[in-house]
Nucleic acid binder design. Structure first.
Length: 437
RNA sequence: GUGAGCGUAGCUCAGCUGGUAGAGCAUCGGUCUGUGGCACCGAGGGUCGCGGGUUCAAACCCCGUCGCUCACCCCA
């Protein structure tokens, strides 16, 4: 009866705790900085939407909708007692559909120029977790919507993405690009591919055999070694795409070169969802498990229309935050992030009021300051300052209170000096500007 | 949904052919009431994931169960 249940985070969810949370904040802030420099602006979206929104955009037949979404009937908003269940709603498995919905709902097609949005936050998938794949996972995404499908837009989006990765030290990456055709040429190619696959069906594994009917493009990125030789001989979409798609892809490559973005063409790069057209891309990184893609994206020119909006061109990507950060951590290429600036080592109760007052001023100046709430032995307090990783110990004892000159000790090299309150604030503020750029 | 591996202290792990639980690190205290990192001494912390079985005796063997991890499927 006194047995207490041990609560734990639900399978596939996790706590991002300090110091990792500091890294996460820095990562997300870096995205904001880079994206806003490309004139993207943030859109904050709901965590859940009507299930049918996802079903329509992602495709009702896919596993995503049929079994991998967290869906539940909303409580009815009507007072009708018989109407127990309201609409079916789902935790978002991705945010592109929500962004499209918002674009349509708020008439953003009437805004001047291209609409450039970014978002970040948690997404949900009901799946067995594995390395770099969680049930609550985080994405940072960006979308460009408007009337133009100029390859320069695709290139700018990709350039922005790679600039961001470079900014956060995610450098050992590979960018793959491909063009998977549009609604004119892709269906023909898919049928051709399916026909070719049927000829070699008995040489393929069970999974690939099934995919011949469900999604033949997916056979192309099969990882099974025995299938690689067969796949290499299959018809390539680049040889069967229409002139318009071919030209679009050629221009994209020119644009990427113009912008100094290095890439690898990968004719086997396909996307699982129907709504993608023409440009697709993916970035893989090191230090991850078999789920090594840190970003996926592509063009989706028909999607807004499919959701009931005006004919609109679109392109976007989503970064897997969990994986990107994992890869940075594995690489050891971590930034020096600000921590505790000052530990106030006060001694003697008569020094306490002064310590409290000074601490407040230091905090107002933007410094991170730790003030012990009870008297400690001096040695212990310096020891704690060290363990907490403070850069400075501010020593306040009876001498300091009497003279009004405080002892500031730099813990890294034990250098210490006596400073008046004014000098102290001046020194710490300028020092901070210097080290934090 | 499928498969494999693993569950011993906060963390990393040891624990022999079964004899009833240990180390390092971390935490807290002391040596040490005006100068941290070091050293030494000490303390707390475990129904060995849980339940059953075999046995005089189970962390160890058997069965079940739960959890974690990785991979497959799928891919947003």
């Amino acid at each position: 009866m006194t047995e207490q249940k041990q609560f734990r985070a639900i399978k596939g969810t996790r706590d991002i705790q300090p110091p990792d949370s500091t890294l996460w904040n820095w990562f997300e802030q870096s995205a904001r900085d880079v994206f806003e420099s490309y004139n993207f602006r943030e859109i904050r979206l709901p965590i859940f939407e009507e299930t049918s929104l996802f079903a329509r955009s992602v495709g009702g037949e896919t596993d995503i909708v049929s079994k991998e979404m967290y869906s539940f009937p909303d409580r009815s908003t009507s007072s009708d007692a018989t109407a127990d269940a309201g609409d079916l709603i789902s935790l978002r498995p991705e945010a592109t559909a929500s962004t499209m919905r918002a674009y349509i709902e708020h008439g953003m097609h009437a805004l001047p120029g291209n609409v450039k949005l970014y978002y970040m936050g948690p997404m949900f998938r009901r799946e067995r977790p594995q390395k770099g794949r969680y049930r609550q996972f985080y994405q940072i995404g960006a979308e460009v919507l408007g009337q133009s499908d100029a390859p320069a837009i695709d290139a700018e989006v990709i350039e922005m993405l790679m600039t961001f990765f470079s900014r956060v030290g995610l450098i050992r990456t590979t960018l793959y690009i491909n063009s998977i055709g549009d609604k004119n040429c892709r269906p023909q190619y898919v049928e051709l591919l399916r026909a070719e696959l049927r000829k070699v069906k008995d040489q393929l594994g069970a999974d690939s055999q099934r995919r011949i009917e469900t999604n033949p493009l997916r056979v192309l990125d099969s990882k099974i070694p025995q299938e690689q030789e067969i796949i290499a001989k299959l018809p390539k979409i680049s040889e069967h795409s229409c002139d318009a798609c071919r030209e679009h892809f050629a221009k994209l490559k020119e644009e990427l070169k113009l912008r100094g973005v290095s890439y690898q063409e990968n004719w086997r790069l396909v996307r699982g969802l129907d709504y993608y057209t023409r440009t697709t891309f993916e970035v893989i990184a090191e230090g991850l498990g078999s789920q090594n893609a840190v970003c996926g994206g592509g063009r989706y020119d028909g999607l807004v229309e499919l959701l009931g909006g005006p004919p609109t061109k679109g392109i976007g990507f989503a970064i897997g935050t969990d994986r990107a950060i994992l890869s940075i951590q594995e690489s050891g290429n971590l930034p020096k992030l600000p921590g505790l600036d000052v530990f106030v080592a006060w001694l003697g109760l008569e020094a306490y009021p002064t310590a409290v007052g000074l601490t407040k001023k230091l905090r107002e100046a933007g410094l991170s300051v730790e003030l012990p709430g009870e008297e400690m032995k001096f040695k212990k307090s310096l020891n704690l300052a060290d363990k907490l990783g403070a850069r400075y110990a501010l020593i306040i004892g009876s001498d300091e209170v009497a003279t009004g000159r405080f002892t500031l000790k730099r813990l890294a090299d034990a250098d210490q000096k006596k400073l008046s309150e004014y000098e102290l604030l001046e020194y710490l503020e300028s020092e901070r500007r210097g080290t934090r750029g």
